[in-house]
Design a protein around this nucleic acid. Structure first.
Length: 597
RNA sequence: GAUCUCGUAGCUCAGUUGGAUAGAGCAUCUGCCUUCUAAGCAGACGGUCAGGGGUUCGAAUCCCUUCGGGAUCACCA
């Protein structure tokens, strides 16, 4: 039983014995004792003063005395203002540590012990390469998936690929007109980059044509609609919907280039998916479902033929679901995709959508529509909404060329990792491949940690001029500490053989050792909070605190050089366990650890 | 205009269901490598928690209000 559970039970007895009253769980507030006071666990006594009809000090004394008398693990207490500080016995902490240490998956729930959850992330358009905003999205979605798994959920990782629509037709038109048959092979460009290039060319040409039309007397609106290249793109979209073989073939070819490019990027990122959904496969289903919904009276139709949902009774608006010409909108395909997924994985309790916070309204509508259509899971679906990555000048804008490309930033991180490592010169003896591997993982840890350590819901700032730090509260710092723990284990084995935790007297444990054990004790709660809030930053911050404390310990106390054999084995075990928890924590962020750096 | 969201050290960010003297990193300045990896450790400097009011034993946290950023309010995606 955890010490918090023990104390909670004892406290219930205490209040009933001392004041003849029952208490509600919300009155029990334990917190970690602040460093400046003596003790491990602190009880806030203010909630009890009404019951006790005494001052906070006396109430604290009374409860403290009771707990000390009735709970073996409580060795001493003191009361400061309204705070009851309890000192828990070293024996308790040592026993806890032994138990935690024997479980390599300490803190994790048994796999597949909770309902299936589907997590969607990435979900790119196929007309341009991935950028820094996608990285935040993808790392976030992947990390939340890992966190839910560690909490016992079955998880299906999916994406929706927006492979159809006017945007891809723009790239296709531009390629047809100006591409001269260029391919990824002939140009040496990554497929997604090549297609993105033609998207930019389209945009440039489109702007020129608009300008010309306006110069000839057209209004801005007319110019936007009537520009010849835009009309070509729209015609191509119609041809695509009519399954014109030539257009379809071009579409397939160019999308295939993009997918190959994306796959390379995902691989560098170290993320994957269990199943991919394509908008081109789901938009028609969405259209049918909307029409069914109309037939079943869930929606209504305007005179022009467009189909709408009325959500005014739920505090939202009326919202169009299908255009008057019967073509699908953004939400139409999302309805189709969601329904298809529930059919593919009938045990899915709910879906999590990792999508930027500018689409909060869209998802509110989507979830209510799903419920209207009879999918009760809609009620539990969750929009994992995250803030933008902003540059010092504001938003990233592809038009102004301020987009930070995903491949570029990852390559840069690796380069910086290499520079730092070569300066340090600690990787002698490794092959070039092994070194490259280390650079890659260190660089990625810096990037992932940078993007995941901040609260997902908040906008964050990225300054390309100052490259991401490798010192302080960063991925490499955590890697570094992990490497230290690995080196200790390795050297222990070389010098003393197999590690076996000796029986030691708990009274010899120092404050920092106890503090580290208590930090490990917190891990399951942190993981639980992170899962409940879909918030990887809690894991990042926890791991940072753990690592920081370990470094102090490492600096102040001998570990391998400790002469007392029992204590040495304890310290090496503690170090190794810290390493393991760090590895678990970083794993939850999608960061894989290196053994040397 | 309506709705939502954010505002904490020079910069980037933490800060549990309201709890003790608001914390980290970066930057600047000091110390510490012949000893387990110095990508480290220790210290200094740095705050009207945007402003004002309220709720209470207690407010960065909850409520009201003003100011300032951002987002959403399409038969765009």
């Amino acid at each position: 039983m955890s010490i918090h559970q023990i104390l909670t039970n004892a406290l219930n007895n205490a209040i009933s014995a001392l004041f003849q009253q029952d208490i509600s769980p919300s009155m029990i507030q334990f917190q970690k004792t602040r460093k400046e006071f003596e003790g491990d666990v602190t009880l806030v006594v203010f909630p009890f003063v009404k019951i006790s009809k005494m001052g906070p000090e006396q109430t604290g004394e009374a409860i403290g005395n009771y707990l000390k008398e009735h709970v073996d693990q409580v060795e001493a207490f003191n009361v400061v203002k309204g705070f009851l500080n309890l000192s828990i016995s070293n024996d308790y902490w040592l026993n806890f540590f032994k138990e935690a240490n024997s479980n390599v998956n300490f803190g994790f729930q048994p796999a597949d012990s909770k309902p299936r959850v589907m997590v969607e992330y990435a979900s790119p358009n196929t007309n341009k390469p991935l950028h820094l905003g996608h990285l935040r999205n993808i790392f976030l979605g992947y990390s939340v998936s890992e966190i839910l798994k560690a909490n016992g959920h079955s998880v299906t990782k999916v994406q929706i690929i927006n492979d159809r629509g006017i945007h891809i037709c723009k790239s296709m038109v531009a390629w047809q007109k100006f591409g001269n048959g260029e391919t990824p092979e002939s140009s040496g460009l990554k497929g997604d980059k090549l297609v993105g290039k033609y998207y930019v060319i389209f945009d440039k040409k489109y702007k020129e044509e608009q300008k010309e039309l306006i110069a000839n007397g057209a209004t801005e609106e007319e110019a936007a609609q009537k520009a010849p290249i835009m009309m070509e793109a729209q015609e191509m979209l119609r041809q695509w919907e009519a399954k014109n073989p030539e257009v379809y073939k071009l579409w397939e070819t160019m999308n295939a280039w993009v997918y190959k490019g994306f796959d390379a990027t995902y691989q560098t990122m170290g993320v994957d998916f269990d199943k991919l959904y394509y908008e081109s496969d789901t938009y028609l289903l969405g259209r049918d479902e909307v029409r069914n919904g109309l037939a079943n009276g869930h929606f209504f139709q305007k005179e022009d033929g467009s189909i709408w949902v009325d959500l005014t009774d739920q505090g939202l608006d009326q919202k169009a679901l299908l255009r008057k010409d019967g073509t699908a909108m953004y939400i139409t395909q999302d309805i189709g995709t969601a329904i298809l997924r529930f059919r593919d994985f009938p045990d899915t309790a709910y879906q999590i959508y990792t999508v930027g916070n500018e689409q909060e309204y869209h998802f509110k509508v989507l979830f209510k529509v799903l419920k209207k259509l009879g999918f009760e899971q809609g009620e539990n679906c969750y929009h994992l909404s995250y803030g933008m990555v902003e540059l010092p000048e504001g938003k990233m804008k592809s038009r102004e060329g301020t987009v930070v490309d995903a491949d570029d930033i990852m390559a840069e991180m690796k380069n910086v990792a290499q520079e730092v490592a070569e300066e340090q010169g600690k990787l002698e003896g490794l092959s070039a491949d092994e070194k490259g591997d280390v650079y890659h993982h260190i660089g990625m840890s810096a990037l992932k940690y940078f993007l995941l350590k901040v609260d997902p819901t908040k906008n964050m700032l990225f300054n390309p001029k100052e490259s991401i730090d490798f010192a302080g509260n960063t991925g490499p710092f955590i890697q570094y500490t992990y490497v230290r723990t690995k080196a200790i284990s390795r050297k222990f084995q070389e010098n003393f053989g197999e590690l076996k935790l000796a029986d030691i007297d708990a009274s010899i444990l120092c404050k920092l050792e106890l503090s580290l054990i208590q930090k490990i004790y917190d891990f399951p709660n942190v993981l639980n909070d992170a899962a409940r809030e879909y918030n990887p930053s809690l894991i990042a911050n926890y791991t940072y605190e753990l690592v920081k404390e370990f470094n102090s310990f490492y600096h102040d106390y001998p570990i391998l050089r400790e002469e007392n054999e029992g204590l040495r084995s304890f310290r090496v075990t503690l170090s190794s366990k810290v390493g393991r928890v760090v590895e678990q924590g970083m794993g939850l962020l999608g960061i894989s650890m290196v053994e040397r750096m």
